[in-house]
């Protein structure tokens, strides 16, 4: 089957070819290869734009004076060798820090035990001692047994406060305790 294109390239297609012939469809490429008219149209366009560039160069004036660079040396590109002193200094500084830190850790007094004690104390009660005194928490703790004696905890199963029997029993216990305290 003959797939050759019969129509000539449009102006836009000629411009596409002018930009880059390789980007044309294979059909257009084949047509361009075989059609002298389209090749001529493309060559004319190419020639026009090339001539434009030629005229631009022709109509550009000469430089006023040639460019001269100053006498200072051109900055060199950095090589690994240039970085050696910097790297050496950095490594020496790191080593120094490591040695100093190691020595300090070795000879510094061991405070880890004190720290654990502090942590334990804080876990038990985070409030400072002064405030604990103000709130009477120290006092409360010291007389806990005494308070337990004053207000005894409920016995197992004795979770009701209602009932005359219970009240009598409680009253009896309370009277007994109060007598002990008074004594």
């Amino acid at each position: 089957m003959n797939t050759e294109r019969l129509q000539h390239l449009t102006e836009d297609e000629i411009l596409s070819a002018l930009v880059d012939e390789r980007d044309l469809d294979s059909e257009l490429k084949d047509h361009l290869a075989s059609c002298s008219l389209c090749r001529e149209a493309l060559a004319t366009q190419r020639q026009s734009f090339s001539a434009l560039g030629t005229r631009a160069r022709k109509y550009t004036p000469e430089m006023v004076r040639p460019i001269r660079i100053p006498q200072e040396p051109v900055p060199r590109r950095l090589h690994f060798g240039d970085l050696k002193p910097v790297l050496g200094t950095a490594v020496a500084a790191c080593l120094l820090v490591a040695v100093l830190y190691g020595g300090w850790m070795r000879f510094a007094p061991d405070r880890s035990g004190l720290l654990i004690e502090d942590v334990d104390r804080l876990v038990e009660n985070a409030m400072p001692v002064e405030f604990q005194n103000l709130l009477g928490e120290e006092l409360f703790r010291a007389e806990e047994d005494f308070m337990e004696f004053i207000i005894p905890p409920l016995e197992n199963g004795d979770d009701t406060m209602g009932g005359p029997e219970n009240l009598k029993k409680k009253d009896g216990i309370h009277a007994k305790h109060m007598a002990t305290i008074t004594a």
Binding site: A56, R57, T60, P61, M63, V64, P66, I67, R68, I69, Q71, E72, P73, V74, P75, R76, R77
Partner: peptide, 30 residues
């Protein structure tokens, strides 16, 4: 690139016309 100033001056001599043309065609003032 190694810091040779004379080599750089040779590059300047080689490219100055092209650079000048590029600049002039855009700003159109000599």
């Amino acid at each position: 690139l190694e810091g040779d100033r004379h080599a750089f001056q040779s590059l300047v001599d080689q490219y100055q016309d092209g650079v000048f043309r590029l600049v002039f065609s855009r700003i159109q003032s000599r």
